[in-house]
Computed example of a mutant assay.
Amino acid sequence: MTKAREVLVIGGNRYFGKRLIGRLVAAGDRVTVLNRGSSAPPPGVVQLVADRDDEKALAGAVGTRTFDVVLDQVCYTPRQAAIARRVFTGRTGRYVMTSTVEVYEHEDSELPVPERAVDPAAVAVDLDLPWDEPEFVEAHYGEGKRQAEAVFTAAGPDLPFASVRVAHVLGGDDDFTGRLEHYADRIRTGDPIAVPPVVHPATYIHVEEIADFLFWAAGEDFTDPVNAASHGTLALDELCAAVAAQLPRGKTVFEVTGSAGVSPFAFRRRYAMDNSRSARLGFPFGDVRRWLPKAVAETLGKDH
């Protein structure tokens, strides 16, 4: 019989995080969740309450516990990474951080972008930036994730680290982002969808698939960044067509604008992710076009 793992999930109480926790519990892992205590943990899960930005509180909540795996769902800044690195170095056999495709926000590549395009070991870290200001963090989302990866990577073998760079997530009736609803609202009314002069396709992943991927990654031993994206790229007009197919009536109207205020997924850059490393490591991705209709139907709901 396989020994149950001690797994800590930091954050992760909604969307694909809650699906990840469900998979861990179903597999027989002993799961602990650390968050600010705003919601109760699922049955069978231990809850630790602390603000991860407060190192003393985080260390106190963790106490003398050690873990086989830490899955960090909510690390957004290098300061948060530095605190976690000090608390968990030598106390876990594996640290997996949920990162983002936005680490490639400065790329503009005709080919899908591989992990080596952003090497965390080469990323400069600036802890003096105003990382405690929510507006700054939101405006520098990709940079915060890049620097967080760099902080963990520098820990070396005492904190075996992997970052999962997640593609744009779609699907589920609990998608809180409102991005697909944005398109549904405009297609129903025929209101224009703002796009830049040139819109580039992107890579996506289904909400259940990223939960599967993170669960799988927890049990592997690879380190360093890995891209998590379904096979294939999806253009914005294809996404809108999939939304329109779920609606009884409506019209898709694109309006080109030079302003910064464009619709979600209307990308000015080419930075679709190369998922070949994940495939080589053994994870079987699905194809974005196969699951897209299901994902749209889940999010828009039967009343649409």
Rank of each mutant, 00 (worst) to 15 (best):
A184G: 12
A184S: 12
A184C: 07
D185P: 04
R186E: 09
I187T: 04
T189D: 13
G190N: 06
D191L: 10
P192R: 10
P192N: 10
V195H: 09
P197T: 03
V199M: 10
H200W: 05
T203K: 02
T203P: 11
Y204L: 13
Y204H: 12
H206S: 14
V207C: 11
V207G: 08
E209P: 10
A211N: 07
D212T: 00
D212I: 08
L214P: 03
F215R: 01
F215Y: 00
G219N: 06
G219Y: 01
E220Y: 01
F222L: 04
F222M: 03
P225Y: 01
V226Q: 05
N227M: 03
G232L: 04
G232F: 00
A235S: 14
E238I: 02
E238C: 09
L239H: 04
L239I: 09
L239D: 05
L239S: 01
V243F: 05
A244Y: 00
Q246M: 08
Q246R: 15
L247A: 10
P248V: 04
P248H: 06
R249K: 15
K251S: 14
F254K: 07
F254E: 06
E255N: 06
E255M: 05
V256Y: 01
V256F: 05
S259D: 14
A260W: 03
A260G: 11
V262L: 05
S263E: 12
S263G: 15
F267Q: 13
R269T: 11
R270I: 03
A272M: 13
D274G: 03
N275L: 02
R277A: 07
L281C: 10
L281A: 08
P284G: 14
F285W: 10
